[in-house]
């Protein structure tokens, strides 16, 4: 690993007191199998955008599900804000509720529809408010899922490969959208992705999960909007790919 990576590594890790999300010594195994997460430590500052990289099966979704409260914490500790939202790879909209009803599912108040309309417009779905989810395209469905996550005004947003099933063009638009939304809402974000470029375009920090632990933790100190042509981009790309065990020319 070269000098710049060493300098940036670990520099952005928030201290224990001001972290929004704090994972300490988290261990998770399924049955008698090997530990998928092995005494994992991770801290995310308020408003920080962290990208979580790792090979398929490295435990990224397991970590995220634990943070979302879907899986139990058996060993170690997890502290996170109360208001969290999750967006999965599939939009998971209820097919029998209209888009706006899906957006404010479980929300109360007389202004439900107004809030739904506002947030749907924010994600660029103002024209499909009354549509049935099964008539949406893949990109539109993910926009609706994002709207549903945002309407709760989460302090911590988790995204589990939200664009993996989208075509390349739609994915670019969605990345832009997430970037804009994060600039406006400033919640902490944990984005699970297997796309190094996506991590470098969006995140403040990239962490790589390997053998159950965060083995690489890299700051991405570039101004936004970011360009692939930026030499730092190229450099960080090399660092991350190397830590993923991929060597590009």
């Amino acid at each position: 690993m070269n000098a710049v990576a060493q300098v940036t590594q670990g520099a952005g890790v928030p201290s224990r007191d001001d972290a929004a999300v704090l994972v300490h010594g988290l261990t998770r195994r399924f049955g008698d199998g090997p530990a998928v997460l092995d005494r994992l430590d991770l801290a995310i500052a308020p408003g920080e955008f962290v990208a979580l990289l790792g090979h398929s099966g490295s435990g990224k979704s397991t970590l995220l599900r634990t943070l979302a409260g879907l899986d139990p914490v058996t060993e170690g500790s997890v502290a996170r804000p109360r208001e969290v939202s999750v967006v999965f790879q599939e939009s998971r909209l209820l097919p029998w509720k209209r888009v706006w009803q899906n957006t404010v599912l479980g929300q109360d108040g007389a202004d439900r529809r107004d809030r739904a309309v506002a947030v749907l417009e924010e994600v660029g779905l103002g024209h499909r408010i009354d549509a049935w989810p099964l008539t949406l395209s893949g990109g539109e469905a993910q926009r609706a899922a994002l709207a549903r996550a945002l309407v709760r005004e989460p302090a911590f947003l988790m995204l589990d490969e939200p664009f993996a099933a989208l075509d390349a063009l739609t994915r670019l638009k969605m990345q832009q959208l997430v970037s804009d939304l994060w600039t406006r809402h400033r919640c902490s974000v944990l984005l699970v992705t297997h796309d190094v470029d996506e991590a470098l375009l969006l995140a403040d920090r990239a962490v790589v999960l390997e053998r159950g632990r965060i083995r690489t933790d890299v700051l991405i100190p570039m101004d936004r909007p970011r360009r692939h042509a930026d030499p730092r981009f190229e450099h960080l790309r090399g660092v991350l790919l190397e830590s993923l065990g991929v060597h590009d020319g």
Binding site: A68, G69, L70, V84, S85, V86, F88, R92, L105, G106, R148, R152
Partner: peptide, 8 residues
């Protein structure tokens, strides 16, 4: 699972 994360 989604319903759970939404706190329903």
């Amino acid at each position: 699972e989604m319903a759970r994360t939404l706190g329903l």
